[in-house]
C-alpha cells in the first residue's frame, strides 16, 4: 500500500518501524526529543517510545557520536542526528578515528552498527554553516558507508537497511527534499546498500547524480528530450560502496557522461567518479567526462546560492560541450 509522505515523514516512519521492531535501536541527538527535531524528522518518537528510546542530549556533537560508539560496543544500535551538516564537524575525530576504524582495530570483533543522520546540502535559503555538502570527508574515510537518498522511498528503505546493517553509516538527507511529498510504499523490500538505480534510460549521454542533484538531472533530461537529445540518469543512492559497474555499463552504452553534485568540485566525490569512468570507459567515450558541481567557495548566502547550485541549465550546457559535432 502506498502512502504520500514527505522525506521527513518517510525517515520518521523508518525510525518508528526500526524502534518498534528492535529493542536495541535508540535515537538521540539535539532537539530530537519532545520537539521532534528542527526538521520534525523525529516527531512523536519520544511520545510513542518513551525517553529511554528517543532522547535529547547535551549540545555536543563529539559527545553524541562518542556515546553512540560506546553504546554500540555494548549491544545497542544507535541512530544519532547531527542537526546540520556543518554542525557535525566537532564529531570529526570520533567519526574518522573511532567509528570508522573500530572494526579494523579489533579484527572484526567489535562492529559498530551506528547510523549518523546528517541533514545536508543547500537550496533552503539557510545562513552560513547550514548548507554544506560534506560527503567527501566521509567518503574518503575507509570503514564508513555513505548513503545519499534522492527519493522518499529510498530515504525510508535505505535508512531501514542502514539501521539493520553491521557497519557504521553516514546517512545524508538532502534538506531541500524534507518537505516534498511523494508516494512511498513501506512494505517494499529494503533495498541492498551499494546499488545504484537507473532512473531514466538514455541513448545519447548519461547523467550521474545523487541526493539533491537527482531531480536536477531528471529535469535536465526532460528539457533535453524536447530538444531531441536522449539523456539517461543514474541515481547513485550509495556513495560508499560505489556501484561502479552500473555507472560503467550505462556510460559505455552512451559514450558520454556528466557527473552532477552540489559539493565544491575540487577533490570531490564527483571527481572520483569522473576519474573511474575515464579509467574504465576510455575506449567507449566520445568526449571527456564533465563535472557540474558547486564552485570551490564557502557555501554562498541565500540570495546567491542559485548561482552555486547545479541547475538543469548548467547541466545542459555541459552536455552541449560533449563534442557532438565530432562524432
Amino acid at each position: 500500500m502506498t502512502v504520500k509522505l514527505t522525506m521527513a515523514q518517510a525517515i520518521n516512519a523508518a525510525l518508528r518501524d526500526a524502534l518498534a521492531e528492535d529493542e536495541s535501536v535508540v535515537v538521540f541527538g539535539e532537539d530530537v526529543g519532545p520537539l521532534g527535531g528542527v526538521f520534525r524528522v523525529t516527531d512523536g518518537l519520544t511520545a510513542t517510545f518513551g525517553d529511554r528510546r528517543c532522547f535529547d542530549t547535551p549540545l555536543a556533537e563529539s559527545g553524541i557520536v562518542g556515546m553512540a560508539i560506546g553504546m554500540a560496543m555494548n549491544g545497542m544500535r544507535p541512530v544519532v542526528e547531527m542537526q546540520f551538516d556543518a554542525f557535525a564537524y566537532p564529531a570529526f575525530e570520533q567519526i574518522t578515528s573511532h567509528l570508522a576504524k573500530m572494526a579494523n582495530r579489533t579484527r572484526g570483533r567489535v562492529r559498530l552498527p551506528v547510523v549518523v543522520r546528517v541533514p545536508y546540502a543547500g537550496g533552503i535559503g539557510g545562513v552560513e554553516h547550514h548548507c554544506d555538502s560534506s560527503e567527501a570527508y566521509y567518503a574518503h574515510t575507509p570503514g564508513l558507508t555513505v548513503l545519499a537518498p534522492a527519493t522518499n522511498q529510498d530515504a525510508y528503505g535505505l535508512l531501514r537497511a542502514a539501521i539493520a546493517g553491521p557497519d557504521p553509516v553516514i546517512f545524508l538527507e538532502p534538506k531541500k527534499h524534507y518537505f516534498a511529498p511523494e508516494e512511498v510504499e513501506p512494505e517494499t523490500p529494503v533495498p541492498p546498500i551499494g546499488r545504484a538505480e537507473v532512473r531514466r534510460r538514455g541513448a545519447d549521454a548519461t547523467l550521474i547524480a545523487y541526493g539533491p542533484t537527482v531531480p536536477v538531472a531528471l529535469a535536465a533530461a526532460e528539457l533535453a528530450a524536447t530538444e531531441g537529445r536522449d539523456l539517461g540518469v543514474v541515481d547513485l543512492r550509495s556513495l560508499v560502496p560505489f556501484d561502479e559497474d552500473t555507472v560503467v555499463a550505462e556510460v559505455r552504452r552512451t559514450g558520454r557522461a556528466v557527473v552532477v553534485a552540489e559539493a565544491p568540485g575540487f577533490v570531490s566525490v564527483a571527481s572520483e567518479i569522473a576519474a573511474r569512468i575515464s579509467e574504465r570507459c576510455f575506449h567507449h567515450l566520445e568526449a571527456p567526462v564533465r563535472r557540474v558541481t558547486g564552485f570551490d567557495i564557502p557555501y554562498p548566502p541565500p540570495k546567491l546560492e542559485h548561482h552555486h547550485l547545479p541547475s538543469a541549465e548548467r547541466v545542459l550546457d555541459a552536455v552541449d560541450d560533449l563534442q557532438w559535432d565530432e562524432s
Binding site: A68, M73, E93
Partner: peptide, 25 residues
Amino acid sequence: VAPQATPLATQLLHAVGAAHAATLR
C-alpha cells in the same frame, strides 16, 4: 576491555555510552 585508546580522552565518551547502554537494559 575496550581497545587501548591512542587519541586522548576519546575513550571516555565510549565509556559513557557503554555505561548508558547497560542502564537502559
